[in-house]
Nucleic acid binder design. Structure first.
Lengths: 338, 338
DNA sequence: TGCCATTGAGTTACCGGTAACGCAACCAAA
DNA sequence: TTTGGTTGCGTTACCGGTAACTCAATGGCA
């Protein structure tokens, strides 16, 4: 099959000519602007239908910069359910309002994000959504120079570049620390994983440590694997900390996947949960609710976060007033693993 | 903060003037085309740097239709790890080759896909990737009329619109059916879930049923929940089929998440796996490898599928020869649950 | 009846790049 | 020296829409 990459499409001018009106009138009909009669509209639409006209948004965006409906969204990666859910709700909100989402993933490498930003800005997007707390200075300068609306998601940022919509990770960690202490845990460890630079669990760990310190029960041990957070990493991270500090009575995991990995490690070794070791995660993974023991975790509103982020960006684009800092909901869910 | 949505950017003309060359020469330098001296290149690049020039791809794509670097990818949804992994590897491959990925999700509703296609085509993409076997006739006509390179992913399609890269779901199902029979299973049930129309597990079920029929052990019972496939659905679907047909000795699940839900249902009821009931899934979820019993499943190369799909599309775009039908790898992984 | 506001169009100019072509300067081979 | 190819760069003409403006016809109201 030989595909012709030539300019093939029907243009607005052809539609207009066929309908016996000017390009401008046809344009008005298609954008549903005012200034045409019902009869004219029908004539134009009939030709649109007949000729199979597909509007050319590249040309439209080019001709009147106001109308770019592209938004860029860059998350750490696309394969995790957590970010996937966020992306899904962002994309839904955007498509409902007629925006197209261009995605990117940076694998927690600020340089990859910078490259993505450079790229996306060349499409003159109506707005961009970026994630995490770490951006290169070049990234920030590029975004500022283009004066493009920005939403930073995931981590709450009280002095955002533009708008921040995120979870209060610090408070999540602190709350869980206090909870574990309240359940009588005294020697507590932490297991996390980060493939590249700073990692998305850092703020939770900070809050968690702070809570323990405040009660004079500082973190007993910490293991942050150089790996993608996941079931495996949780499994082996648990093995590591238990071998290193066999007397700990609880482990806080970076997320539920790791916590579940840890639970199964314990199960495989005959370690009783929560009798011997208490376990807590973060993120309210679905699988956590079908396993025999309900995992103590923090439920997070990823959908809510995505929706808020998209809606805040749209408001900003439209010049409507928006809150600069929006906290996405989280809630400690006591299970029976601590 | 008042964001100006005005035409702000530095244009190529300004860069060219500052560098004392023509627009065309500056354009050549930036596209790394030939026809300029090293000295000219340095002069231009210095001004690019100094003025913070960000190329305008909208204009570039508009001016010379050949150069649109947008590709569209539409999957059922973005929140599952399975599609997420595919999307991730597609996106990686594309960004390595300088393409921008615009995403869409259709939730298994062909009409949603049609709307997305209509939208994406107005961006004159270099190519599109769609998924599943069900498309509206309007979708197909639109794509054909625009003569845009297309890759259909997920389901293998032996007579594709353009290119098909997919798993051979039918064979996966058939192979698993034969395997379960070979392990002495005789009364076998199926548990699946589909939120909307046709569902992505249908072809596997067909192959599975065929294998059972061929051995005169037809499917004993089938439960397809009207729900998103997941741990919950697997849990409750298992409850349903076991209550309905308590004498079945094995269940084939639509995917691993459902199978794991089913395993935990059995565990909660004291039903021995594989003693009382054998269980098999599909998709090689990571969590399946940390639970105490290794789940019998079919490992699928989602990354490989994504990479192949992206590379095939790029080859097609470039006019290089490509196979029309590419099978992504799958492999039955015997665990100890059947 | 005369005047002005409204409606339904058309005209013109432009957005910021790139393709295609032109052309002078230079160099190597005949 | 002539010829022909290459190199380096400029000129021109668009790509397909939309903003801003203009203008004639219409109709309501004083």
């Amino acid at each position: 099959m030989s595909k012709s990459h030539k300019r093939s499409g029907v243009s607005l001018a052809e539609v207009a000519k066929a309908a016996g009106v000017s390009k401008m009138t046809a344009s008005r009909v298609l954008r549903n602007a005012s200034g045409f009669s019902a009869e004219t509209r029908d004539r134009v639409m009939r030709e649109v239908e007949r000729l199979g006209y597909v509007p050319n948004r590249i040309a439209a965006a080019f001709g009147s910069e106001q109308t770019s409906t592209i938004v860029g969204v860059c998350v750490p990666h696309l394969s995790s359910t957590l970010y996937g859910t966020v992306l899904d709700s962002i994309n839904h909100a955007f498509s409902r309002f007629g925006y197209q989402t261009i995605i990117g993933s940076h694998e927690n490498e600020p340089e990859a994000e910078e490259a993505w930003v450079r790229n996306i800005l060349s499409w003159r997007p109506a707005g961009v959504i970026i994630s995490g707390r770490t951006h290169t200075t070049a990234t920030i300068e590029l975004l500022k120079a283009q004066a493009v609306p920005i939403v930073e998601i995931w981590n709450l940022n009280t002095s955002p570049l533009d708008i921040s919509v995120g979870f209060n990770h610090y408070d999540c960690g602190r709350e869980m620390g206090q909870y574990m202490l309240s359940k009588g845990r005294r020697r507590i460890g932490y297991v996390g994983a980060e493939a590249n630079a700073p990692g998305m669990g850092a703020a939770r760990l900070e809050g968690f440590e702070e809570a323990l310190r405040a009660s004079d029960r500082p973190l007993a041990t910490k293991e942050v694997l150089i790996d993608r957070p996941g079931f495996y990493a949780g499994f082996y991270g648990t093995e590591t900390v238990l071998n290193r500090a066999g007397d700990i009575d609880a482990i806080y995991f970076q997320d539920d996947a790791m916590a579940i990995g840890g639970m199964f490690y314990c199960q495989s070794k005959g370690i009783d949960i929560p009798g011997d070791v208490g376990i807590a995660g973060w993120g309210s993974m679905e699988v956590a609710s079908v396993i025999p023991q309900r995992l103590t975790t923090t439920a997070v509103g990823t959908q809510s976060l995505g929706k808020s982020a998209a809606e805040a960006l749209i408001s900003r684009i439209r010049g409507e007033p928006v809150d600069d800092v929006i906290v996405a909901p989280t809630r400690l869910v006591p299970g029976n693993t601590v």
